[in-house]
Simulated assay, not measured.
Amino acid sequence: MDNFQFYSPTEFIFGRDTETKAGEMVKKYGGTKVLIHYGSGSAVKSGLLDCVKASLDASGIAYTELGGVQPNPRDTLIYKGIELCRNEGVDFILSVGGGSCIDSSKAIALGVPYNGDFWDFYGTGKEVEKALPIGTVLTIAAAGSEGSGASVVTKEEGSLKRDVGSDLLRPRFSILDPVLTCSLPAYQTACGATDIMAHVFERYFTNTREVEITDRLCEAVLLTMIKETPRAIAQPDNYEARANIMWAGTVAHNDIVGVGRSQDWNSHAIEHELSALYDCAHGAGLAVIMPAWMEFVYKHDVMRFAQMAVRVWGCHMNFEFPDETALEGIACFRSFLHSIGMPINFEQLGAREEDIHKLVKKMGIGDGKTGGFVHLTSQDIATIYRIAANAGL
């Protein structure tokens, strides 16, 4: 196990009707003028936005609001949010929505005190030195942004999707009411579940040895998703299934399952170009890319993939031919994704094989390499895209 520092200061308020505590929590963390940032009309139609406003009113917290966050959140709305916060004297941002809304909120939070373009931080490694505090009321279990310091947004010019990470972007608090996820369509539930599993796999496939504790934590989250996702799709109002998925989403990405080990994140980087170009759901893109990445890299550490096959998917270990076990596990993963309604190839996603050159070029690797588990060249990435394009069961 590698040396590590783990810092996860977010306070989680979990359970039924916890959204009524939004005002109390903003006040606790020093907010006096809030930007309520939310997505499309669902927060309005469901009455959630009114509930949050009533909670802020009861705590004597002033607020302004900005809706319109889209999946794969856009820089154009973020610029509007930064200007609005500056003009209104906002000192706290409250995100009401899913990961896209939270990521947009984080971008606004770092942009308000910065004397420059917020985009300077995305995909550059530039250190965030100051940001407004953030709180969240989560409505989708998927991205894990409610407990992480990460933010991923899209620059409309050039369709560039990039990320930034900083502990200063970790929410001060996150309100998690599983009931708020019960109205999600089956497809959105499945996309979220795929994203959660991908966050775990990005950490699970590591070159660090002797990390049994986090191996087992990763496997526990994956087994939970395998059990609960079909239940939530078949029974949308199943509170216990929704609750387990919601907490799994947080645990999968606040890095408790990733400490002390090297991580990869190639699959996310490769997928980002798909969702930036085609505006597909991030989880759906991951469903196409991650098994393809696995097929390309599994020989790098066959026994780790075989371990995944046995411990997560219940495959029989073939010690004489461990490659067969590893490939069986990958096939089980792809089959599971298909069973919950996810696409498994380019055609089902709405992507085009003829765009692979464009996708690779947009990653900006050139003659370099990227990744943690296996360092990939541009040619390697093109091969992964081709595997994904033509995948089947």
Rank of each mutant, 00 (worst) to 15 (best):
I13P: 01
G15D: 02
G15I: 06
G15V: 03
R16K: 13
D17Q: 12
T18E: 10
T18N: 12
T18P: 00
E19W: 04
T20R: 15
K21H: 01
K21D: 03
G23L: 13
M25Y: 15
M25Q: 11
V26G: 08
V26L: 15
K28S: 09
K28V: 10
Y29V: 06
Y29H: 15
G30L: 04
K33C: 08
V34S: 02
V34H: 05
L35P: 03
I36K: 03
H37Q: 14
Y38W: 13
G39L: 08
G39P: 02
S40T: 03
G41Q: 14
G41P: 05
G41E: 11
G41A: 12
S42V: 00
A43M: 08
A43S: 10
A43H: 00
K45D: 15
G47R: 13
L48A: 08
L48S: 07
L49F: 02
D50V: 01
V52Y: 13
V52M: 11
K53S: 07
K53T: 04
A54P: 01
A54W: 06
A54Y: 07
A54F: 04
S55A: 10
S55Y: 05
S55P: 00
L56R: 12
L56D: 04
L56A: 11
A58V: 07
S59M: 08
S59I: 04
S59P: 02
G60I: 04
I61R: 00
A62I: 03
Y63N: 12
Y63W: 13
T64C: 09
T64W: 08
T64Q: 01
